[in-house]
Computed example of a mutant assay.
Amino acid sequence: MQRKSPFVRHQSKQADSFKRVCGTARRVWNWALEEWNRQDAAGRKSNAMVLKKAVQCHLIHRPKVA
């Protein structure tokens, strides 16, 4: 009996999509960490929910790139 690999082989479109999603998540994480540190250095108390709302607002209201 052959063992199944725990790794899924994805189609190239799916692999590209996964790379974009992971890249976006990393950019958001890095931005939030930088913002958290900036607010901490300025002596303000950071709040995760405020940062989350700022990211969502930015994503909704960002200008369209042609």
Score class of each variant (00 low, 15 high):
1 M>T: 06
2 Q>Y: 13
3 R>M: 12
4 K>W: 06
4 K>L: 07
6 P>W: 00
7 F>V: 14
8 V>P: 01
8 V>H: 03
8 V>D: 04
10 H>N: 09
11 Q>N: 11
12 S>K: 13
14 Q>F: 06
14 Q>A: 11
15 A>I: 12
15 A>M: 11
15 A>Q: 15
17 S>G: 09
18 F>D: 06
19 K>V: 15
19 K>A: 14
20 R>N: 12
21 V>S: 06
21 V>L: 10
23 G>V: 07
25 A>L: 15
27 R>T: 08
27 R>M: 11
28 V>R: 01
29 W>I: 11
29 W>L: 13
30 N>E: 12
31 W>A: 02
31 W>Q: 05
32 A>Q: 02
33 L>E: 15
34 E>D: 13
34 E>Q: 07
34 E>I: 04
35 E>M: 01
36 W>I: 03
36 W>K: 03
37 N>I: 11
38 R>G: 07
38 R>A: 09
39 Q>C: 12
39 Q>T: 09
40 D>G: 07
42 A>C: 12
42 A>E: 15
43 G>V: 03
43 G>N: 08
43 G>E: 01
44 R>P: 03
44 R>D: 13
44 R>K: 12
45 K>Q: 13
46 S>R: 04
48 A>C: 04
48 A>G: 05
49 M>Q: 11
49 M>Y: 14
52 K>M: 02
52 K>P: 03
52 K>V: 01
53 K>G: 01
53 K>I: 01
54 A>Q: 02
57 C>L: 11
58 H>G: 03
59 L>S: 04
60 I>F: 01
61 H>C: 10
63 P>H: 08
63 P>A: 08
64 K>G: 08
65 V>Q: 08
65 V>M: 15
66 A>M: 14
